[in-house]
Computed example of a mutant assay.
Amino acid sequence: MAARILITTDYLHPGDTVDQLLREHGLEPVYSPSRGPRTLEERRRLFDGVSGVILASEPVTANMLASAGSLQVIARSGVGYDSIDLQAAAAQGIRVCNAPGTNHHSVAELTIGLIIMASRRLLEVTTAVRQGHWPREAGHELRGSILGIIGHGPSGRATASLGVALGMTVLVSTAHPDPADTAVQFTDLDTVIRRADYLSLHTRAGKSPGKLIDALRLQAMKPSAVLINTARGSLVDEQALAKALSDGTIAGAALDVLENEPLPVDSPLRGLDNLLITSHLAGQTAEARIRAGLAAARAVIDVLENREPAHPVDR
Score class of each variant (00 low, 15 high):
188 D>T: 03
202 H>P: 05
241 L>D: 01
189 L>F: 13
200 S>P: 04
180 A>T: 10
227 L>I: 02
204 R>C: 10
185 Q>A: 08
238 E>C: 09
211 K>V: 01
240 A>I: 06
186 F>L: 09
188 D>R: 03
209 P>H: 08
206 G>L: 07
176 H>E: 11
186 F>W: 07
186 F>I: 04
237 D>W: 10
237 D>A: 06
196 A>I: 01
223 P>L: 09
233 G>T: 10
185 Q>R: 14
201 L>P: 06
218 L>P: 10
182 T>A: 11
190 D>Y: 07
227 L>G: 04
177 P>E: 09
223 P>H: 08
210 G>S: 14
237 D>E: 14
229 N>V: 03
239 Q>V: 13
222 K>E: 09
225 A>I: 05
190 D>Q: 14
198 Y>R: 01
208 S>I: 04
179 P>M: 01
215 A>W: 06
192 V>F: 02
221 M>T: 01
180 A>G: 14
202 H>W: 11
184 V>C: 08
210 G>T: 04
214 D>Y: 00
224 S>F: 12
223 P>Y: 12
202 H>M: 06
192 V>G: 00
197 D>K: 08
185 Q>K: 12
183 A>D: 14
191 T>L: 11
206 G>Y: 03
226 V>K: 03
232 R>D: 09
214 D>C: 01
179 P>Y: 07
220 A>T: 01
207 K>Q: 12
241 L>N: 08
228 I>V: 15
204 R>V: 10
203 T>S: 11
241 L>K: 05
192 V>M: 00
176 H>V: 03
200 S>H: 01
235 L>S: 02
195 R>Q: 15
236 V>H: 05
233 G>N: 13
217 R>Y: 05
194 R>S: 14
183 A>Q: 13
190 D>M: 07
221 M>V: 08
190 D>T: 11
207 K>P: 09
236 V>M: 07
183 A>K: 07
230 T>L: 07
192 V>D: 04
224 S>W: 07
217 R>P: 00
195 R>V: 03
193 I>W: 00
215 A>T: 05
234 S>C: 05
208 S>T: 12
205 A>E: 12
189 L>I: 03
194 R>H: 15
176 H>L: 10
216 L>D: 15
180 A>K: 11
183 A>N: 02
205 A>K: 14
218 L>W: 03
213 I>S: 02
216 L>T: 11
197 D>F: 08
186 F>Y: 15
198 Y>F: 15
234 S>P: 02
184 V>W: 02
228 I>M: 08
210 G>H: 12
192 V>R: 04
207 K>G: 01
226 V>W: 02
240 A>L: 10
206 G>R: 03
217 R>W: 03
204 R>F: 13
177 P>L: 08
221 M>E: 04
204 R>Q: 15
241 L>P: 01
194 R>V: 02
222 K>W: 09
221 M>A: 11
184 V>G: 07
220 A>K: 11
194 R>Y: 09
209 P>N: 04
231 A>F: 10
213 I>Y: 04
206 G>Q: 06
234 S>A: 15
183 A>W: 05
204 R>E: 14
193 I>E: 00
200 S>R: 00
175 A>P: 06
205 A>S: 15
177 P>G: 07
181 D>F: 05
212 L>N: 05
205 A>I: 10
178 D>Y: 08
228 I>C: 12
182 T>G: 13
188 D>E: 14
186 F>H: 03
233 G>I: 03
203 T>G: 00
183 A>S: 15
218 L>I: 06
221 M>H: 06
203 T>M: 04
199 L>Y: 05
175 A>V: 08
